[in-house]
């Protein structure tokens, strides 16, 4: 509920959106699905710019990349046959997990998920493990593309930072996912009190195997940590270039957690998340190993 909302705009061009956002940076917010913006009472928003008329709802495949428009809803992603085949369907699985309610999935957009719910989103670790990039147009009308981890570091709160939309430096146009190599296997998982509740922690793992059955590249990401979904570089380095076994995975999963600070909220404590995270990651890697090695 936006208590002080006075103006609603629904422009049809990106230029108009940027102009409106630049005119009132501290009070004007981007409205896509509205599931984050309107779900809690807010007094700081005086104007909203509805971007639903911008024709950013699409899922395209181009030059080995899948390009998903920023206002594509999670239900559309879930229904997309193209995305169902990518990385064992982990994008679809994460979308389904993001909300059990079809109503919410019909409203919630991918752009909103990475800009408004990026710390706790189930899609966060999946996009990170898939090395997704974010394409946006900045306030000078220049198109830029960033790795999603860099994008999230721009959103991290800093003293003196102004503006709504969590400090997004422009308007997100699309999310670009490189198609994983065919010899890779992927898994997504989560821990929740009950299925209908938001995840306490979620994670995604992708292992790329070579012809020699060795792990050429490992990418593991988890959510519900203080800053943003994060990769586990020490764990990944411990797996790369090796012939994977369940024992190696089990021993690797216990290292590299010292620097990570999970959140405490009404659903679980940081200590609980700290204990559960390595177990979740080990199970994900075991699944990848079972599916991927030959």
């Amino acid at each position: 509920m936006l208590l002080n909302l006075r103006k609603y705009y629904r422009p049809r061009s990106i230029e108009a959106v940027i102009r409106l956002l630049s005119a009132n940076p501290g009070r004007c917010a981007v409205l896509a699905g509205g599931t984050h913006l309107l779900a809690v009472p807010r007094q700081d928003v005086e104007e909203v710019v509805d971007i639903s008329s911008l024709k950013l709802k699409s899922v395209k495949q181009e030059n080995g990349n899948i390009r998903i428009g920023a206002t594509t809803t999670l239900q559309s992603i879930l229904n997309s046959p193209r995305l169902r085949k990518v990385a064992g369907g982990i994008v679809e699985e994460a979308c389904r997990r993001s909300s059990v309610s079809r109503m919410i999935r019909n409203q919630r957009t991918l752009g909103g998920e990475i800009c408004g719910n990026w710390k706790r989103s189930d899609l966060g670790p999946v996009l990170l493990a898939l090395r997704a990039r974010v394409k946006l147009v900045n306030f000078s009308m220049e198109e830029k593309e960033f790795p999603i981890s860099d994008f999230w570091s721009m959103l991290a709160p800093r003293p003196g930072k102004r503006g709504l939309g969590q400090g997004v430096p422009g308007l997100v146009l699309e999310i670009v996912i490189p198609t994983p190599v065919p010899t890779s296997s992927a898994a997504f998982g989560h821990v929740a009190q009950i299925e209908s509740q938001p995840s306490l922690i979620s994670g995604a793992a992708i292992l790329e195997f070579g012809d020699d059955n060795q792990c050429h590249e490992a990418r593991v990401a988890v959510s519900c940590f203080t800053d943003s979904p994060c990769r586990l570089p020490q764990l990944e380095a411990n797996l790369q270039g090796k012939m994977l076994t369940r024992e190696l995975i089990a021993s690797s999963c216990s290292i590299g957690w010292e620097d990570f600070r999970p959140i405490t909220d009404s659903r679980a404590t940081a200590n609980y998340r700290r204990v559960v995270a390595p177990v979740l990651v080990r199970r994900l890697l075991d699944r990848c190993l079972a599916e991927g090695s030959h």
Partner: peptide, 9 residues
């Protein structure tokens, strides 16, 4: 499409 009208302007 089914939506929640409480979080829709």
């Amino acid at each position: 499409r089914i939506v929640n009208s409480c979080i829709l302007l």
